[in-house]
Amino acid sequence: MATQATGAAAVPRPAGLGGALGLSPGARKALARFGWALVSVGLFTAIWELLWLLGWADPKLLPPPHIFLGNIPDQARFFNTATRWQIGVNPADGPSPYEAVFITIGATAMRVFAGLAIAAVLSISIGVLVRYFGIFEKLVLPTITLLSPVSPIAWLPVAIFIFGIGNAPAIFMVVVALFFHMVLSTISQIDNVSRNFINVARTMGATKRQIYTRVIIPAILPQLLIVLRLNLFGAWMVVLVAESTGVGFGLGQVIMMARNTFNPSLVFFTIALIGLLGFLSDWLLRLIQKRVLFWVPETAGVLRGL
């Protein structure tokens, strides 16, 4: 039994399943989150299945999960997009269906994380330089503000003109989708750093470079990582559009093939994969955030019980 202090007395509180299994508090918290995630997804799936059972969802247009997830080998055979349409190549050649799924997932994830890393490094560096050098701000910030409202989809022809067909245009699209907003977010976070921190650093004799490296950048990292996590979902959206133009193979290519062949089951199967990958990507970034920002306490949910 665990205890919870209430005034001067300690009231026993049930330890729960995690406590009964002898898990640490961190492991129990992770287990609880995983359990609620399963409940959330299960509730959504149950509603979808109920609509199908009542006849309100056409299985030919909106197949329920038990249909498009019930025959994974049949769905996996469509993922071999690299050799399926090549002239003179047997569609049966190349990787097996399951290997093709993992190759396709790996290719798309590589483009997302490569673009995410490039955009993060460039945007944070330029955002800091904009505030560090006054002349740099005058030369660069107006152009960034001008291009920021442009939709990433509008850059697709430019990406194809410059890089042709391959991985480069997809990565470029991800970079463009994140870069401008992250630069403006970096500048905004720098402007919002408490002046008390900067004044204390100056009182202690810190130079301008030391103020930026020891005070400003550590102060803005928590919010920048949150912005990076939020933009991660946008990166997944943009890379699918880029892949649909003929990258060669990727989840975007599978979606386009499913649309052209009117295969709703394949569409929803691929959507389920993308959702799972986005969830796992966000989980991975949260783990990185905890490791990098070790000095920031976890305060989420503090006011829920009030």
Results as ranks from 00 to 15, higher is better:
G205S: 04
I190Y: 03
S188N: 15
I187S: 05
N167C: 03
I187N: 04
D191Y: 03
V183Q: 11
N196D: 15
S194W: 01
P169N: 09
H181P: 05
V176P: 10
I153F: 15
N199G: 00
F179E: 06
M204I: 04
N199A: 14
V175K: 08
N199S: 08
V176G: 01
R195A: 04
F163N: 07
V183G: 02
V158S: 00
F172R: 03
Q189N: 15
V174M: 04
F163C: 03
I190T: 11
A177F: 02
N192G: 03
V200L: 07
V176W: 03
M204T: 12
V176R: 02
G205V: 09
T186W: 00
P149G: 10
F172Y: 07
G205R: 09
A170S: 15
V150S: 12
S151M: 11
N199F: 06
I190C: 04
T207N: 01
S188I: 14
I153Y: 15
I153P: 07
F161T: 12
S185Y: 01
G166Y: 04
P169D: 11
N199V: 03
A168N: 14
T203V: 09
I187H: 09
P149K: 15
F163W: 13
S151D: 05
I198C: 00
D191S: 00
F197A: 04
G166D: 10
F172E: 01
G166N: 14
S185G: 08
L156I: 15
A170V: 14
L156K: 09
V193G: 00
F161K: 13
N192V: 00
P152N: 12
F172M: 03
P157V: 07
I171F: 11
L156F: 03
V175E: 09
G164A: 14
I190P: 03
A170F: 05
A170E: 07
F161Q: 12
W155C: 10
L156H: 03
V174N: 06
Q189V: 06
M173K: 04
R202G: 09
